[in-house]
Design a protein around this nucleic acid. Structure first.
Lengths: 402, 402
DNA sequence: TTAGATAGTCTAGTAGACGAACTAATCAGG
DNA sequence: CCTGATTAGTTCGTCTACTAGACTATCTAA
């Protein structure tokens, strides 16, 4: 509930609707009786609330479950897979990936559009997104699911979920929701709300949502297309004053000596970035993203112990460890998740990061939980779609009002 | 309201009581009519709510204000300065400072107890705190203010507001509320709830509370007795998984070459810590804290341009800038506040920190708001006391229930 | 003195949660 | 197959706390 607005019976009701939705999302198929017990509400109130949610197409009754023990068997409730769905788009330099997920979190459809180079005019992205959107909207229509929203993840700064600044894409002050909303209208999808998010921030949320990692403070570091991070504190991404939180690419590394595209020298990106790593290990630089081009030859080279690759990975781990060494004492996170290309570099890479971290801050670093992300490279699209459905779960009242 | 608990009429009521308290705290003397307008509640509800709060000794009517314009003059309400008060203690290596503040935020009394060395046995601190507590409790009694709680700020890790680990004081797993609660009982003060907090975290809150800096993300870096930080995100300090968030003292600085007490080499504390700075500038090392010993000779030396002092300060600024350079891109704060001894080093010091920061991260660092703290060295005690009264304002219902 | 304006109280009405009594459906035992 | 025990879910009357609008109170200005 809004802190500075008055609480009325209606707000009370909204809170309890959301509480029921969250419990069903967490528990899966569940009876009203259990909901009453878990929520602390009475059976009669739960009957009332679930009635509204079922009527609003957010919950569904799936009949009586198998009776174990005496007593009337329960009428189980689940999140309605026929209810509203969310579309998520992941915009990269060379691709647009899309996910369609329903309330239960199930992936209903996926789509991928490759492209040579989407930088420059935002209309290129809009154009590449069009077939993806068309397919996902058709998929939603074919099962009569209403699309509740479209969320976009992209490499760039986002403020107020609208204004954008992206060095990677070469955009600034781009009102993507406006542009995309127009196109959605043109596709005959009606007026669907569009939001925009930073991809690393979404990837951080993904680690929480899709792996059940209930860390109070979670630091995600990913690498595609540029190195960046998302910090989750209290279950929320902290985007920063300018939406720039997590931009670790250009933090200086003590032993860094290479010039960076940003004009500086020795940025973390020149040591641990995907391109830098490829170049340093003598691999033909794949200009393609991991999503489009696969994991590349680096993991195999590392596995085989190829010398230049190992040295490059070591350097990257030390750089990453050094930067994390400055971050860990400040934030004291529960866990650090390494995603993007870092997740493909294997256990020795992780151990070296941990080693460097332990050297930087022995107390906290030594037993810090550091784990690779096990989520696929297009997880940002899935996370974006999930922001839409998650919002329905957290605030079901707005949907019931239609 | 708790996210996972049901909303009942009682919660609704609690929310609205808190809303009224916050508005009065923000606005000062205010009429019921204006409260109704500002809160969005109706006049009748405000009458009901303020009635309870006045009856519970949290608000007080101060008669009709000067009538400007036609109409019945307003009966103004204020936070009740005769209501519950909070006691805050600031525990340092060589002192215990105490503040007594009332609901309005007014400082009702202060006390300071110097000591040679409070490290080691926690009972030393308890003993040093006793005269301070006695005086503050007497001050509260003399005006019939009830002491609603005692909050303690100390250099160390705090979890769940109870367990403590402090390298500075040489404590570990100390249940200070338990020890102090006993002593309060012995002082005849009855059973007063005691909480414990990290001093840097409190200092960060102080910058928000006492200067009205409504930053979404605020980074406070202080230096006494050890260098440390507090990070405010969304109006709350994020304490970290182990309560260790903000422990920047032992982050490595690239050019650091001195051994540190922690066993490492080149920690920020060896470059920018209070003792390191004194030693490097050739000043007789004051083992006394700034609170007990004053600002020391360093500011004057810097002012006069003394060479070693200037060089030492420059080194400190560069170290601080380097560490902040790793933090700023991760957090994208609205403002960085430099407190403790950093606040005494003058504008050139600040500018050098900014310069280093701008070099580390040109985009964000160049126009980052960096300001010195203007709060006194015993502000941690005041902030601790304020946590008590702030809690009364944020959750008045518990007090009304008595 | 009176009209107009603003402050605050009073009373009836309403939304929504609670609680107890009730219906529903199943198991276990005779 | 009936009966009592057990659990699921609904109905209906009660209670809390906010709303709305009438009403009272107290001021200024004409």
């Amino acid at each position: 509930m809004e802190r500075d607005s008055p609480a009325r019976p209606a707000q009370q009701h909204e809170h309890n609707l959301a509480l029921i939705m969250r419990l069903v999302a967490r528990t899966g198929a569940v009876s009203r009786a259990k909901l009453a017990h878990d929520s602390g509400l009475t059976k009669s109130t739960v009957t009332q609330l679930t009635g509204e949610l079922v009527g609003g197409g957010l919950l569904r009754e799936i009949g009586t479950g198998p009776a174990r023990g005496p007593g009337r068997p329960a009428n189980l409730l689940v999140l309605d897979s026929l209810g509203p769905v969310g579309i998520g788009l992941q915009v990269g330099v060379d691709h647009v990936a899309g996910y369609l997920t329903d309330l239960t979190g199930k992936i209903r459809d996926r789509a991928l559009r490759r492209a040579d180079d989407l930088r420059g005019d935002p209309l290129r992205v809009i154009k590449a997104a069009e077939p993806v959107l068309r397919r996902l909207i058709n998929a939603a229509n074919s099962t009569d699911n209403v699309v509740a929203g479209v969320a976009v993840g992209l490499p760039g700064r986002v403020r107020d979920a609208t204004v954008v600044r992206s060095t990677v894409l070469g955009w600034s002050e781009t009102n993507l929701p406006w542009l995309l909303g127009d196109r959605l209208d043109a596709l005959g999808a009606g007026s669907i709300p569009v939001t925009v998010h930073n991809s690393h921030h979404l990837a951080a949320h993904a680690e929480q949502w899709f792996t059940g990692d209930n860390a109070e403070i979670l630091v995600y570091v990913g690498g595609e297309p540029v190195l960046g991070a998302g910090i989750l504190a209290g279950g929320q991404v902290r985007g920063g004053a300018r939406g720039a939180a997590g931009e670790l690419a250009h933090v200086r590394v003590s032993f860094g000596d290479l010039p960076c595209a940003c004009g500086g020298v020795g940025c973390l990106d020149t040591v641990a970035g995907q391109q830098a790593l490829s170049r340093a290990s003598g691999v033909d630089m794949p200009s393609r993203s991991r999503l489009v081009g696969g994991d590349g030859p680096l993991p195999a080279l590392l596995e085989s112990g190829e010398r230049r690759a190992v040295a490059a990975a070591r350097r990257a781990a030390e750089g990453l460890g050094e930067v994390l060494g400055g971050l860990v004492p400040a934030l004291d996170p529960d866990v650090i998740v390494l995603g993007g290309h870092f997740a493909t570099l294997g256990a020795p890479f992780l151990e070296r990061v941990r080693g460097e971290l332990a050297q930087q801050c022995p107390e906290l670093g030594a037993d810090m939980r550091i784990r690779p992300s096990r989520l696929p490279p297009d997880v940002v699209a899935r996370a974006a779609a999930t922001t839409v459905t998650q919002h329905l779960i957290e605030d079901p009242a707005v949907r019931l009002a239609e």
